[in-house]
Design a binder for these strands. Structure first.
Lengths: 338, 338
DNA sequence: ATGAAAGCGCTAACAC
DNA sequence: GTGTTAGCGCTTTCAT
């Protein structure tokens, strides 16, 4: 391993100057900077991040904590964050909490505290006050996606508005008998996402003067299979069948699509279906949905962190930010047939 | 931040002893170890990984390099690796190469060389000789998944055998008019996975004395949509329709399933379909497939690395290892109707 | 603008 | 089994 002193020798300067020239911190004349850079590249020199971190207190590494990885939403967020971090010269260390309570404790007790990361992005995680305060006590900026987390800047999707929008789309097409597939309490983690979306549905119905039929609500588990089974119950009944379904996620909505087909119903002629997410499969299935943009969410979280890592940043400058969403109308919804 | 010396003071020992007691390296009497541990935990002390790495030369961090993240296979591998690493007290730093050539260079030129990782797992990546030799020059163990990479221990799936097995399953059910959906050359990256699977298909057909009809080969792009469109071509023809399709991935096979339905064909009565992967959706769709086990592949790669990181390890001990695979028969395949 | 030198917090010889 | 001490390779005051 070539070290900083070899570069210094080759460039004919001190190690201090090499450090300044390469990091961009501190004044260096253009001429010497040039010499240092070429010396470094001819030697193939790359700073040792450990030594650098130890001396400077910065690691150029951020921890990203997710509850799952092999789900479209989370892996997309991570992908977006990774790309953004790479652009800033940062590494991304991944912590997956799907291992349960034990792994969660070990991540918080050991890993994040090892002075290994400069900041933390928590995706769809309800952190305890204790977890938050320990992170903040280390002066590590923390940003949440999917919050809100009290006392932490968070990027949040307005789930109420999203669900309302999806429902209003159906209402505007003339539907009145609208079913909703949400989640049972066991899936109502993640900041009550499911119950908030249900409230958005109910508000839209209420605002339009429509009655909410309890028999048109089905809980599921956010998977295609769950949506499929729920939709079978809704669409299989011999009378009073809903003419539209609002599913709280695209995966469940795709399950609905498949259930409708299996029941011999045509979408959107016999039933309109709308989801939330703009999942990677949504386009193929022609699913109308309210898009959220997980890759962008990852990038945005990085932007917020980079701001917070600037010394001159107002700590409170970036508080909760609303994430964008957008109705994407495809071929799974249509005007109610007369 | 409480440091090692505070722990030493509280425990009434030297910092060296604290280091030994906490790391488990070097002899410490049970009594002092006990005292040190309780001192550390009352102070909430956690070692600074940078200082530790700088002094010891080990980072307890491994880099995982993937070409994509938001695809089931890759995120599952990473998930498996992450869980295994956590168990060994290691962190996982993620490098996603989907940013193109530029990000690839920056990952190799800058990030991995910063002495930040002890080892590297490369998933489905054909590394250049240069990339390999630079990594090895740093004495960083490197293990590939999906190889082979010359000179690097690799976990490989025997794609030829896998494809052969899938095809033989169809043949054993009496099928003779078997179509294959593979990939065009533009998707034949990843160690010629697609063309190897095609050869496996052809070998099985040949061994059974069946003729390979060129008109029953369709290239696609490994997506559901691609499989759907390819299957439409195969199944839509008015005569000489294949009675079975072997798709080189489950996603394409699922596309076939959907195409068959849309054409009014019943699976498996009118057409049998088999894929490869055991994708998370395979069970829901009742897809017969040859399972590979990406989570386990991630874990296994970690095992290999942990071995290689032992000082006493034979460097060549673990050369290429074959990954397990298994035929999973569900409801998308059946005996050819008479 | 540049150099000298004091650490950053820990580990690993080496002594005892 | 335990303490002493010399670094690990940088960054950053503080001089100049």
């Amino acid at each position: 391993m070539t070290g900083i002193d070899e570069v210094a020798r080759l460039a004919g300067v001190s190690t201090a100057t090499v450090s300044r020239a390469l990091s961009g911190n501190g004044p260096v004349s253009p001429a010497t900077r040039e010499r240092v850079q070429s010396a470094a590249s001819t030697l193939g020199y790359v700073v040792s991040s450990n030594a650098s971190s130890l001396a400077s207190g910065r690691t150029r590494n951020v921890g990203v904590v997710v509850p799952f990885l092999s789900r479209w939403f989370f892996s997309s967020v991570v992908e977006g964050a990774e790309a953004a971090l790479l652009g800033h010269g940062y590494d991304l260390t991944l912590y997956n909490l799907s291992g349960g309570e034990e792994s969660r404790r070990s991540v918080f007790d050991q890993f994040l505290l090892r002075k290994r990361v400069d900041a933390v992005i928590a995706v769809a995680l309800e952190l305890t006050d204790d977890e938050v305060s320990r992170l903040l006590a280390l002066h590590k900026p923390l940003v949440g996606i999917g919050g809100p987390i009290p006392g932490v800047p968070t990027l949040t999707l307005d789930d109420l508005a999203v669900a309302q929008l999806a429902t209003e789309h159906l209402i505007s097409l003339g539907h009145t008998q609208i079913a909703h597939i949400g989640a049972g309490v066991e899936f109502d983690l993640d900041f009550h996402l499911a119950s908030t979306r249900r409230r958005g549905f109910e508000r839209a119905m209420h605002d339009a003067g429509l009655t909410i039929r309890d028999d048109l609500y089905q809980p599921a588990d956010f998977t295609i299979r769950g949506g499929y089974e729920a939709a079978k119950q809704l669409l299989g009944r011999p009378y009073d069948r809903p003419t539209a379904i609002f599913a709280a996620s695209d995966e469940m909505a795709i399950g609905c699509l498949l259930a409708a087909r299996d029941l011999g119903l045509s979408v959107p002629r016999d039933v309109s279906i709308v989801g939330i997410d703009d999942h990677e499969l949504a386009e193929f299935f022609g699913l109308t949905t309210v898009a959220q943009f997980p890759r962008q969410q990852g990038r945005l979280a990085v932007d917020v962190l980079m701001d917070a890592l600037q010394p001159e940043s107002d700590d409170a400058a970036t508080l909760n930010r609303e994430l964008p969403f957008q109705l994407v109308v495809r071929s799974s919804t249509a005007r109610l047939a007369d």
